[in-house]
C-alpha cells in the first residue's frame, strides 16, 4: 500500500502530474473574488468562509478524474486489480494520494488566502481545522465518483455532476464552522459534523468504490 502511495505521489510531482495546479486554481479563484464583488471589507469578510470553501471544493474537483483515468488508460488499473492489493485498499490509497497532493496543500494555503478576503484573524484556526477535517471527505467521495466513471469518454464532466451534490454536506458544515468562528461563536458542532461526514466516507466509500471498479473493469 505504501508503495502505491509513494508511486502516486512521485507521479504527481513529476512532469505532467498536475501537482500544484489545484493550488494555483484555488489561489486565482480567491484572488478574483475581491475584483468581482468589490473591495468592501465588510462584505468580503462575510462571504469569505463560503468563498474559501467553494474554492477549495472546485480546486479539489479539478484533479479528480485523474485518480483512476490515467491508470485505466495505460492498463495499470487492470494489473493493479490482479495484484495482491485488495481493490478496497486501492481506492483508499488513491484517495489518500489525492488528498496529500490537493486537500492538504489547499488547507495549508487557506489561512494565507483568508487575508485577501479580510477574513477575521482569530477565526483562522477554525477555518484551518475545518478544511483539515473536511477535505479528506472531498477526496474520498471524489475517488468513489472517479471509480464510477472510470473508462467513460468525457467522464470528467459526469464526474463533476455526480460528485458536487455529494460535497454539499461538507460544504455546508465546513463553511458554517468558519462563519461561526468569524462571528465569534462556538464552532464545535459544525466541526463535529464535518468530522462525522469524513469518518463515514472513509469507512464506507472504499467498499463502494471497489464495487464500482469491479463492474467497470469487466
Amino acid at each position: 500500500m505504501i508503495r502505491l502511495l509513494v508511486r502516486d505521489l512521485k507521479l504527481a510531482v513529476r512532469a505532467g502530474g498536475g501537482f500544484g495546479l489545484a493550488l494555483a486554481f484555488f489561489l486565482i479563484v480567491t484572488v478574483l473574488v475581491p475584483f468581482g464583488v468589490g473591495p468592501a471589507s465588510e462584505l468580503l469578510g462575510t462571504i469569505a468562509p463560503g468563498i474559501l470553501w467553494i474554492g477549495a471544493l472546485l480546486a479539489c474537483l479539478l484533479s479528480l478524474d485523474r485518480i483512476f483515468a490515467t491508470d485505466h488508460e495505460d492498463g495499470s488499473l487492470e494489473l493493479l486489480a490482479t495484484a495482491p492489493l485488495p481493490l478496497e485498499a486501492l481506492v483508499a490509497v488513491k484517495a489518500a494520494a489525492h488528498w496529500l497532493t490537493t486537500g492538504l496543500p489547499l488547507t495549508l494555503a487557506a489561512p494565507a488566502l483568508g487575508v485577501l478576503l479580510d477574513f477575521p484573524a482569530p477565526a483562522y484556526g477554525t477555518l484551518f481545522l475545518g478544511l483539515l477535517l473536511g477535505t479528506p471527505a472531498l477526496s474520498m467521495i471524489g475517488a468513489f465518483g472517479a471509480a464510477l466513471t472510470v473508462g467513460l469518454k468525457r467522464g470528467g464532466l459526469l464526474l463533476s455532476l455526480l460528485v458536487l451534490p455529494l460535497y454539499m454536506p461538507t460544504l455546508i458544515f465546513g463553511a458554517e464552522a468558519a462563519g461561526r468562528a468569524a462571528d465569534g461563536q462556538g464552532a464545535s458542532t459544525p466541526l463535529l459534523l464535518v468530522t462525522l461526514i469524513t469518518l463515514g466516507s472513509l469507512a464506507l466509500l472504499p467498499f463502494a468504490g471497489a464495487a464500482a471498479l469491479r463492474i467497470n473493469l469487466r
Binding site: 507521479l11 495505460d74 495499470s76
Partner: peptide, 10 residues
C-alpha cells in the same frame, strides 16, 4: 494485457 501498465515519467 495489451497495455503494459507503464508510467512514462518513472
Amino acid at each position: 494485457a495489451h497495455a503494459d501498465g507503464l508510467k512514462g515519467t518513472l
